[in-house]
Design a protein around this nucleic acid. Structure first.
Lengths: 234, 234, 234, 234
DNA sequence: GATGAATGAGAGTTCATTCAT
DNA sequence: GATGAATGAACTCTCATTCAT
């Protein structure tokens, strides 16, 4: 195992921002492929053709690099077009929001997992930029729920956090299973199914099991009676 | 052949099984408090007043210890009384099953997390004892769902795996949030809410949303007729 | 990995000699199969159904056990019938001795290697019983050489140690190669070839290249002259 | 991420190649003095005033270091002047080659032993650089043997491998004995003796033994004839 | 006589981080 | 600005040996 020869002796001098960007890109790639567990600073350095020293010039800590990589990723995704309707049928709007969240997480599951399972546990998570970014992702779904509740279409007797946990629990659970190789899944179908269950679960009015049609019968009877009365009148 | 005439402290001699049990207990404690990431064999040894050598006498690998700790925990919990009804109102049964799963996970969330997030990703997870144990936990809930589907009370048009992901996604999400210190949660309330949403989401019959619009149509017709009659009167 | 159950709880009580013999047998087996490098006292204990403690009752040290195992093996082999002729053609006798040594080493190469490469390097090797035993093996060959030298059949101008190194060097070299899996070898052929080269190399008289036939020519000439003289006489 | 603000001693900074060279030198020294058995990376580090970490920076494994140490040594020795004649008396050429091999091995017997007894047993020995290097050493002797065989000076009825085993067996046996402290030996004398025996052993023409019996036959015939003449006389 | 639980020194290896150049 | 040599604490795992029972 002859010590590998130096590949480059003279470094490219890059403006700070560009270098930082390159490092972050590489870090993202490494995180994606290895997971945060196997994330090695040495591999990041190798990938972007720099030295570890340079990385530490810009990032005080491996963890900081990891965080910035996650943030930059969020930033990028959040900047993409998101066709958020604020009107239209609530089902449509909810589906759209859930679909977007699902595909968001699925696009970079390793990054997602790092944020959702590790960073979120960090005591100063709430002070991080990514905390706000993540809130925004959640908000895109929860604002629809809130709208539904305000319009009276959704019940208001359940704590928001629980609704959030159900929706995002389903989304993440599905993604982790996919990550583990337990078969692929269709974002479209999953989003549709989750939306469906949530809509039914949240809809106001008596549940179908309580026979909504009863209500209708009663109303019909009343109206029929009304009818007869009117008929009798003439 | 280094060890040659030294002074050694021979602490407590315990029968094998007892020692093994102590080690597993300590391992569980360490896992609970540090998580599998920061799980050190040295700490386990210290806690139960042995040497690391002793631990390695009984467990070929740190990971094996971790796995056995998890398995013994599952075993213990699964052995507890579980009042599984196979009859009675489906809502009641589902609530009970979900409640049990929630409290199961919540009792030792770090262990849970190790099993659900790390072990589950292991290629030979399916060959582990804990795989079967975990299946049993899931089965307690899913058998109720299956019963509901068979009785016609629950819809059968959704893939089981999705239903499972929604239920356990909600359960776990809630637990991780609690783990992160995002406030406590009431197992009773959570279980009730999850049950409620799932029941509504799964119930057969037209969704209440669809029913409502139907109803509205019919009422409109009736009212329209009424209208005409009244018009005719004048 | 459930800690394996105890197989036996109550030990067989054996007379000292029998126990020692059993241990030595097991040690020999382990040495043969694993080599001295991978020789584990635990494996020895397991093989003869005792505990390591018992082994240490009889052998102060792992190395002592190893040595006794080797000695017992030598003893056994040396006790076997060895048809050592002290008369007869020297070539025959040498072949026989070399053949015996070769098959001796080849029968248990791992043990051999331990003795020849490790023990022999030990400072107190000369005080060990096996030293004498090994001398005996070497002697069986070297006594033939000595006899050859005394009878004048072999040259005496080479140091004995060198002759020994040549003969046993060839024997061992061949055996190690075989051990490494570099093909098998025929003890018969090897012994024959080594014998042949050594005989030629050691034979007295002018070497064939130095024209032995010269001598014959001279004798022939002399006899011819004698002949003529006799003829002339008649 | 443990290392955080500590005082560290930064000894000497050396260019990679130089550091590698130093490590290899130290490794060679340790191997020479302790043998591969007692070869400790910690001792290597200490000797060249570095940390073990540095060693592992350049050598992925202790074994790799060992191998490279051996290779560098071989390389060094092979690079030295070797006055290989391709003509001249075969005895001279053989002596020279054997002498060179003997002194080669004797200069660093522990390294030799590592290569010849351990590395050679490694399954991927044939893919190592040192395999080729060692072949070259053997070739220097065996090419002379081959030349002798082609010229008809040496017999061709013995397998090459056997001849090789005899020559190198003798060489190595002698060296190990020396290693064990069984007295020194003169490379010159040993080479001469080995050469002598091998030359005699390999020379073509009837062996002196066979020649002798021939001669005896012829003399017997002559004497018989003489006898008859004498008888006739009387 | 026998057991087997217990030990502990230390081996090899990893990697985030530092800082002289 | 960039490098990459250097570090060392930490970690997992091994196994000959001891000795209470």
């Amino acid at each position: 195992m002859p010590p590998r020869a130096r590949t480059r002796s003279f470094a490219r001098r890059l403006p700070r921002d560009q270098r930082v960007a390159e490092i972050i890109q590489s870090a993202r790639a490494v995180l994606r492929e290895r997971g945060s567990e196997q994330f090695l600073t040495s591999e990041v350095a190798e990938r972007c053709g720099t030295s570890e020293g340079t990385i530490y010039k810009y990032f005080p800590t491996k963890r900081d690099l990891l965080i910035e990589a996650a943030e930059s990723w969020y930033e990028e995704l959040l900047a993409e077009d998101y066709p958020a309707r604020t009107s239209g049928p609530i089902r449509e709007r909810l589906y759209q929001a859930i679909w977007w969240s699902l595909s968001f997480i699925r696009r970079e599951p390793a990054l997602s997992r790092f944020v959702l399972m590790e960073l979120r546990a960090d005591p100063n998570y709430p002070t991080m930029r990514i905390y706000q970014q993540n809130r925004e992702v959640v908000e895109r779904v929860m604002s629809v729920v809130a709208a539904g509740q305000q319009s009276g279409a959704f019940r208001s007797d359940l704590p928001r956090s629980l609704i959030r946990d159900i929706i995002f629990g389903a989304i993440e659970h599905q993604t982790w299973a996919y990550l583990r190789g337990e078969g692929d899944f269709s974002v479209d179908n999953s989003a549709a199914a989750i939306t469906d269950i949530v809509i039914r679960g949240l809809s106001t009015g008596p549940s179908s099991e309580d026979l909504l049609s009863d209500t209708v019968k009663r109303l019909e009877n009343i109206v029929a009676a009304l009818h007869q009365q009117l008929d009798a009148k003439t």
